[in-house]
């Protein structure tokens, strides 16, 4: 197991985090360090504990054991809003976007810029529209009309609005939950570019995926999860794409399955032409 050769403080760190749901141990003793300017990929197959881990990182669940540190200080998230206030922003798979509301209204939801401090003060719409448009342009998205409903956008565009929102509101740790899973090739490429963009701005990006082909090109560090446990954290230089796939799918298990299949095929006299 290799640690990335970095001496700066991690932007976010999990120490010995376990999560139990009744008798189910969803996560066991997870240690993760995420550094600024790094894309840290959390990889794992279905049921590996990715979703639970993301909920711990984002403040939806509280760990049963262990601690979360942001900038070296132990923190407790009571809600996703708590996490956001400490600069930990999560773009969930459902994106947290409300389709019937406009881009601007979604962008500023919960942080609406008002013209005064009075309770029913007017939202400064001109400023909100301009800021939303600029924030989107900053990460390379040209919004046609910030007042159009989010439901009219494509999946990739919605994803980018969500990322732009997180970046704009001062996220230092950006957690992306399967951002490319529902997207086509072009749109996935667009989202991967935003990830690089965020990294270049010095954000610590946590990229959760089960798709190694999306994660490997943009990732700096890979943490592999399997059945609720950390199966190792590797720098990109220390691990190949195939090795990642092998560990992700449970390595030995897969070899056993392959051998079994090969045996079956041999029995019926139809040998595979190539074994990976």
């Amino acid at each position: 197991m290799t640690e990335p050769a970095q001496h700066i403080q991690p932007a976010m760190e999990l120490r010995g985090v376990s999560v139990n749901f009744g008798s189910v141990r969803a996560l066991q003793d997870i240690d993760i360090k995420v550094y600024p300017g790094e894309v840290h990929c959390l990889l794992g197959d279905n049921g590996a504990g990715k979703s639970t881990l993301i909920k711990v990182l984002s403040g939806v669940h509280r760990p049963s054991k262990g601690e979360i540190l942001v900038d070296g200080k132990p923190v407790t998230f009571r809600s996703p809003r708590d996490a956001q206030d400490l600069g930990v922003a999560t773009v969930f798979q459902d994106l947290g976007m409300i389709s019937l509301m406009s881009i601007t209204r979604n962008f500023f939801l919960g942080r609406e810029p008002t013209k005064s401090k009075l309770p029913f003060s007017r939202i400064d719409k001109e400023r909100a529209n301009a800021v939303a448009r600029q924030a989107m342009a900053d990460i390379g998205i040209d919004v046609r009309d910030p007042t159009q409903a989010v439901g009219t956008l494509s999946g990739g565009e919605r994803q980018s609005v969500a990322i732009a929102r997180a970046v704009h509101f001062g996220a230092r740790v950006l957690i992306l939950d399967e951002p490319t899973s529902a997207l086509g090739v072009h749109q996935a490429a667009m989202v991967l570019k935003f990830i690089i963009e965020a990294r270049m701005r010095g954000l610590a990006v946590i990229f959760i995926s089960h798709n190694i082909h999306h994660a490997y090109p943009v990732g700096d560090t890979f943490t592999l999860l399997n059945r609720g446990r950390n199966r190792g954290t590797y720098a990109k230089s220390d691990i190949s794409r195939d090795e990642v796939i092998s560990i992700m799918s449970g390595g030995e298990d897969l070899k056993a399955v392959e051998a079994e299949i090969a045996g079956l095929l041999a029995q019926i006299g139809n040998r595979p032409s190539a074994t990976p």
Binding site: I98, M101, F108, I123
Partner: peptide, 20 residues
């Protein structure tokens, strides 16, 4: 107003609204 935006959001997607 902000409160109006919250009304839309609460009915539009409860979890998304709560998360932000």
């Amino acid at each position: 107003t902000k409160y109006g935006n919250w009304i839309f959001a609460t009915g539009g997607d409860l979890n998304a609204a709560r998360n932000v």
